Computed example of a mutant assay.
Amino acid sequence: MSPLEIAAATQAKTPGSPGASSRRPGSRRLGLAGWLLPIALAALWELLVRAGIANGRLMPPPSVVGRTLWGLAASGELLTHVTATLWRVAAGFGLGAGVATVLGALTGALPVARGLLDPTLQALRAIPSIAWVPLFILWFGIFEASKVALIAVGVFFPVYLGVAAAIQGIDRKIVEVGRVFRLGRLAMVRRVLLPAILPAWFTSLRSGLGLGFMFVVAAEIMGASEGLGYLLVDGQQLGRPDTIIAAIISFAVLGKLADGLLLAITRPFLAWQDLGRDTL
């Protein structure tokens, strides 16, 4: 067993360990409580519009937005837009996160690679996302390749920074403990160094996924004929704020579900952590 695995096994036997505390009923109640604020605000706006106190023309009440969402869903249009957006985000996220992980590991572990690559990548990180749009259109055309490339750029930088910083910030004491256990080079990477950087890597993946949903809006404005970004533009051109808000709500729901899925996938790999989130 690695030092980290030994610590995890010790904490698993301790009452109040993370594995036990994460399943407390109180955590579920707190999760449900997170819905109270948006539901209360939506109900308040509905009441204000129905009472004639507020004008619902530019900011439609939830009942109007709900009817719009239902109509889009019933016609199959919403599913078409959601599927197109999810495919682009998934493709861009996979490409950007994969390349970023490799380059981040190289620049974090090898000083030579850091000196050669990091200055250029840091300069590219300062370029606004919208500046890549005309270049990608010239390179890849207005079809899917340019959209996926733009999303990949948005995902790349937070993942790259997270991986590189995590490797450079590994505690020297962890490495020394691995040497005490006489671990070889590959065993040191697999059983000590990799678990040490997993928390920062998974956090950077979540940040990259969030930016992927932001960049898909810019990507779908680049001449797309379907997708939630296209639905936003279509609502703006037709002067339909209910369509715009319906697309925004769809983005919010999809982003939250995707983040929850990523969190659920990565949580088992971090079960060894002894966090104080439930004791504060």
Rank of each mutant, 00 (worst) to 15 (best):
G227P: 09
V177I: 15
T243F: 05
L161Q: 13
R267I: 00
L86I: 13
L44C: 11
L69G: 02
P119T: 06
L150D: 02
A84H: 07
T68W: 03
P60N: 03
A246P: 12
A51T: 12
L150P: 03
L58P: 00
A109L: 11
L79G: 14
L138C: 07
V192R: 04
V217R: 04
S17G: 09
E5D: 04
H81G: 14
M188D: 07
D118N: 12
A100G: 08
W272F: 09
T107G: 06
A105M: 15
A33C: 05
R114W: 07
G115C: 05
S22K: 13
I245P: 01
L183H: 09
P3K: 01
P15I: 04
L138M: 14
G229R: 00
R190Y: 00
I249E: 01
L254F: 05
G162V: 13
G154W: 02
S207G: 15
G212N: 03
V155E: 05
R179E: 15
W201M: 15
F143M: 01
A97Q: 06
F202K: 02
M59C: 08
L150S: 05
L32Y: 14
P111H: 10
W139P: 07
V177R: 08
P199W: 02
M1T: 13
W272T: 05
I221R: 11
K13S: 10
G31V: 03
A219N: 00
V49Q: 08
L121S: 02
W35N: 06
T279V: 12
F140N: 07
A264R: 08
R179I: 12
I249A: 09
R191D: 14
E220V: 13
L209P: 05
L32E: 00
M214R: 06
S63R: 13
V82I: 15
R206T: 10
K13I: 06
I170C: 04
G76E: 13
G108H: 01
G239K: 08
P128V: 12
L209E: 00
I248W: 00
A219Q: 05
R240G: 00
A131G: 00
A113Y: 11
L231W: 05
P15C: 03
V99N: 00
G208M: 01
E144F: 04
L198K: 01
I265G: 07
M188N: 05
L193K: 09
L194Q: 06
A100R: 02
I151Y: 00
I142N: 06
L4A: 12
A7R: 07
V155F: 09
F251Q: 00
G34P: 10
P15R: 00
P158C: 08
I197P: 07
L78F: 10
E77N: 11
A164P: 04
G141K: 08
W272M: 04
G178K: 06
V65W: 04
A200E: 11
V189H: 01
